[in-house]
């Protein structure tokens, strides 16, 4: 286990989240089974203060669910989330509300994440109001102005509505809203995925600057390995609700151990391509989380799968300094990336 509970700011312990489908009387009478999507299963990790933990994985693998369960935006089904020594999952409403000031989230969709009927001043000022952080309206306004300027907008923008801004500017508003209450930990749920490349870079720059300035800790979710590789200190790789590999960014980038991570790395189109990389060709599509495969969840697409993979789920093992992976064939030191032609 990597999570060192004593030094971690956030410690996620065996967290699971299952979404239950609708199951009303009629369904029950007709004997229909309730659908269950196990979006996150038995995930554990820690995030140290000041660190950026990158979380990467394919669409639908449960990244957002994990981020939201940590903040209890979706109630976890099992497991614990310990933030700064406090078990967040056990808090009552009032204590949770106080905790929310310290843990924030930045969303993916710059259009859906802002209330279209509120001005920028109202949106950014909401956390101050909810937590009673300022005494007078002028003090609140000053704080909002300072924050808005910090994220690169102008105070002249304060009384405009979200639809009057571009995607990148809206994302800045979302960031200002998340940071105005001086939180310590931010879940960044694909904050740049919806943006143009040149705007992406602006937001990434802003997020790294703000992290330095305000001493923040990020859980940075993305499906873009370039972004994760550039930003993160450590990386966790998710596949169908489980973390299959986790470790320092250098080890994950240069020596990925899990077959899925290896195929993920090889699939990234590289701009500075001198030589073409070795390719791991995965066949088949992501299995449905409604009926996940038995044993190792990756076995339906894994080029290395053997009999035991179909029957038994692998356990997470330490494979290097702070580096862990879950695969039956780790010890055989097989690499998909090795000499697969060029």
């Amino acid at each position: 286990m990597i999570a060192q509970a004593d030094t971690a700011l956030l410690d996620v312990q065996r967290l699971s989240k299952t979404y239950l489908g609708r199951h009303n009387l009629a369904d029950r009478l007709s004997g229909r089974k309730q659908t269950r999507v196990q979006a996150v299963s038995d995930v554990s990790f820690g995030v140290r203060p000041g660190e950026i933990l990158g979380l990467i994985g394919e669409s639908g693998c449960g990244k957002s669910t994990l981020g939201r369960s940590i903040l209890r935006l979706h109630e976890p089904s099992a497991g614990k989330v310990v933030f700064d020594g406090v078990d967040v999952t056990g808090l009552d409403d009032a204590a949770m509300k106080a905790m929310r000031r310290r843990m924030q989230i930045i969303f993916q969709d710059p259009y859906a994440s802002l209330n279209p009927r509120r001005t920028v001043a109202e949106i950014v000022g909401l956390p101050l109001k909810l937590h009673g952080l300022t005494k007078t309206p002028t003090e609140a306004r000053d704080k909002v102005v300072a924050m808005v300027e910090k994220v690169g907008l102008k105070s002249a923008h304060l009384d405009r509505y979200p639809h009057q801004f571009s995607g990148g500017q809206r994302q800045r508003i979302g960031i200002a809203r998340a940071l105005v209450s001086n939180p310590e930990f931010i879940v960044c749920d694909e904050p740049v995925s919806a943006l143009d490349v040149s705007i992406q870079a602006q937001i990434i720059e802003l997020l790294t600057d703000l992290k330095q300035e305000m001493g923040l800790t990020y859980l940075f979710i993305s499906h873009d390995i370039s972004v994760i590789g550039y930003l993160s200190d450590r990386v966790a790789v998710m596949y169908l609700g489980e973390i299959v590999e986790m470790g320092p960014v250098e080890s994950i980038l240069t020596g990925p151990r899990h077959p899925y991570t290896q195929s993920l790395m090889s699939a990234v189109p590289e701009v500075d391509a001198g030589v073409r990389k070795a390719r791991v060709r995965l066949t088949g599509d992501l299995p449905s989380p409604l009926s996940p495969p038995s044993g190792c969840k990756f076995h339906t697409r894994c080029p290395l799968a053997i009999d035991i993979c179909r029957r038994q789920a692998p356990v997470t093992e330490r494979v290097g300094n702070g580096h862990q992976a879950a695969c039956h064939r780790l010890n055989e030191n097989l690499s998909l990336l090795d000499p697969v032609g060029t």
Binding site: V197, Q202, E205, G229, D272
Partner: peptide, 15 residues
């Protein structure tokens, strides 16, 4: 402005 693992620790230069 493309963030790349090779540029870790350096600043990117967005337009």
């Amino acid at each position: 402005s493309i963030p790349r693992p090779a540029l870790r620790g350096e600043r990117i230069h967005p337009i």
